[in-house]
Simulated assay, not measured.
Amino acid sequence: MINLFHADFVARHLELLASTEAWIGRGQAAETAYPIRKVNEGDRISLGDVTLQIVEPLATRSRRSRRR
């Protein structure tokens, strides 16, 4: 999974996506011009012996709740 929509964004994400079996994970509100896998708080992603759990940053939750 690649989640790169931040200040540390990597500009070659689409090339990396095309040349690997990686996928780009984004939150449910994300809108992109490229394919993504939408993830939710608490989702789990298994990578061999490692399991990652999706955690939405508090700042993101705060911004989203102010938009409602």
Rank of each mutant, 00 (worst) to 15 (best):
M1S: 08
M1V: 05
M1T: 08
I2N: 01
I2P: 01
N3Q: 05
N3S: 12
L4W: 06
L4P: 03
L4D: 12
F5L: 11
F5D: 12
H6R: 07
A7I: 10
D8V: 06
D8G: 12
F9Y: 15
F9P: 00
V10L: 02
A11R: 12
R12W: 13
H13Q: 11
L14R: 12
L14M: 07
L14V: 08
L14A: 08
E15L: 06
E15P: 00
E15D: 14
E15K: 10
L16V: 08
L16E: 04
L17K: 10
L17D: 02
A18R: 08
A18M: 04
A18V: 00
T20L: 00
T20M: 04
T20C: 01
T20S: 10
E21P: 03
E21M: 01
A22K: 00
W23M: 04
W23T: 13
G25I: 08
G25L: 14
R26K: 09
R26M: 14
R26E: 14
G27E: 07
G27D: 09
Q28V: 07
Q28W: 11
Q28L: 14
A29N: 15
A30T: 10
A30C: 13
E31C: 10
E31A: 12
E31I: 14
T32F: 05
T32N: 12
Y34G: 01
P35S: 13
P35C: 05
I36S: 03
I36G: 02
R37L: 09
K38N: 01
K38Y: 03
K38G: 00
V39I: 12
V39R: 00
N40A: 13
N40M: 05
E41C: 02
E41M: 04
G42I: 08
D43N: 11
D43S: 10
D43L: 08
D43I: 09
R44I: 04
R44Y: 03
I45E: 00
I45H: 04
S46C: 07
S46I: 10
S46T: 15
L47N: 02
L47D: 05
L47C: 07
G48Q: 02
D49L: 11
V50N: 05
V50W: 10
T51A: 02
L52T: 04
L52Q: 02
L52G: 00
Q53W: 03
Q53D: 03
I54D: 01
I54T: 10
I54E: 01
I54L: 06
I54C: 06
V55D: 06
V55G: 05
P57N: 07
L58A: 09
L58P: 01
A59R: 10
A59E: 10
A59Y: 07
A59I: 13
T60C: 11
T60A: 15
T60F: 11
R61N: 07
R61I: 09
S62I: 15
R63L: 13
R63S: 09
R63T: 07
R63P: 00
R64Q: 13
S65K: 15
S65V: 15
R66S: 12
R67D: 06
R67A: 13
R67W: 11
R68F: 06
R68K: 12
